[in-house]
């Protein structure tokens, strides 16, 4: 962030988008503002505050659960509907990642829009097949994976929709950190549908390493249709290191991240077994 010339309190989503479009890359929306302060973009001279756009609500709808873009991690962790969604994984982890005063700042919109490699919300939302309410030329709802692929600068994230289809699924989130107050060296999220001992549908997402969160259909498909037992998971655990690119950086080597991947998927197996009991 260079010299900020203007801090604009948008009166509505529409107002915010219009302002952003007029200024193009010189404008940025403020969610929690955490990233904007931390990694200043010299091109940005106007900040558009979304606090007055009514985007903080979390509510249950016919489609699932709508999370306003400005909902903070703490608000998500306190949300009763979220505490029941996918057996509570979103609420549980929203109350545990980062640290307490950041959890009261970080917004789900900011997390999704920024999508850092080590973000924990994005991979988990991906695994849960979340949708994004976007306001751009028009208001539309797109799958999160699509939004992340084709994000445009002035597109405003109005909120996230967690689809009803996964409400009774089992959300799994595994992250490995050096201390509890740390970003993950590796993150694995999954959403499992288990019906009478059989995995109906599985979705595995890997994040928390260099590069963005990625769905791993080759792993997920290996589980689909299998009963919950070691025979189902063993090949997944065994092949993961080959099928997933885990990267390498100063926080952890590629070899170690592959070990973590095994640990995460072993954890998934234990989680599934636990769920069965």
């Amino acid at each position: 962030m260079g010299k900020i010339a203007e801090y604009y309190y948008a009166s509505s989503c529409r107002d915010a988008v219009e302002r952003a479009r007029a200024l193009d890359s010189a404008a940025a929306y403020v969610g929690g503002g955490v990233e904007l302060v931390l990694r200043r973009n010299p091109g940005v001279t106007t900040l558009i505050d979304l606090g007055r756009c009514g985007l903080s609500e979390i509510r249950e709808t016919d489609e699932g659960i709508d999370i306003g873009a400005l909902a903070t991690l703490t608000e998500m962790s306190h949300s009763v509907p979220l505490q029941h969604y996918a057996h509570g994984s979103v609420a549980h982890w929203a109350g545990r990642v980062a640290s307490n005063n950041l959890r009261d700042m970080i917004t789900v919109g900011g997390a999704v829009a920024r999508n850092q490699p080590w973000n924990d919300m994005v991979p988990h939302l991906l695994a849960l097949d979340a949708q994004v309410h976007v306001l751009d030329d028009e208001e539309r709802t797109v799958p999160l994976r699509e939004f992340l692929r084709s994000k445009r600068g002035s597109a405003l994230v109005m909120g996230i929709l967690l689809p009803k289809a996964n409400a009774d699924a089992f959300g799994y989130l595994w992250r490995f950190t050096r201390t509890e107050q740390d970003i993950p060296l590796l993150h694995v999220s999954a959403c499992l549908h288990i019906d009478t001992g059989v995995i109906g549908q599985a979705s595995i997402v890997v994040g928390g390493r260099p590069g963005h969160a990625e769905e791993c259909p080759q792993l997920s498909s290996q589980l689909t249709g299998h009963p919950v037992d070691h025979a189902a998971f063993a090949p997944v655990i065994e092949s993961a290191g080959r099928l997933v690119d885990v990267g390498d950086d100063l926080r952890a080597s590629g070899a170690y991240r592959r070990d973590l991947l095994r640990a995460a998927l072993t954890g998934l197996e234990e989680f599934a077994a636990e769920v069965m009991r």
Binding site: G33, V34, N101, L102
Partner: peptide, 19 residues
């Protein structure tokens, strides 16, 4: 640098004053 904003703790070092 923690302060409470409407009763919730935030890091004042990462918060825009205008916000």
């Amino acid at each position: 640098c923690t302060v409470l904003l409407d009763g919730r703790p935030v890091a004042s070092c990462l918060m825009f004053a205008a916000k």
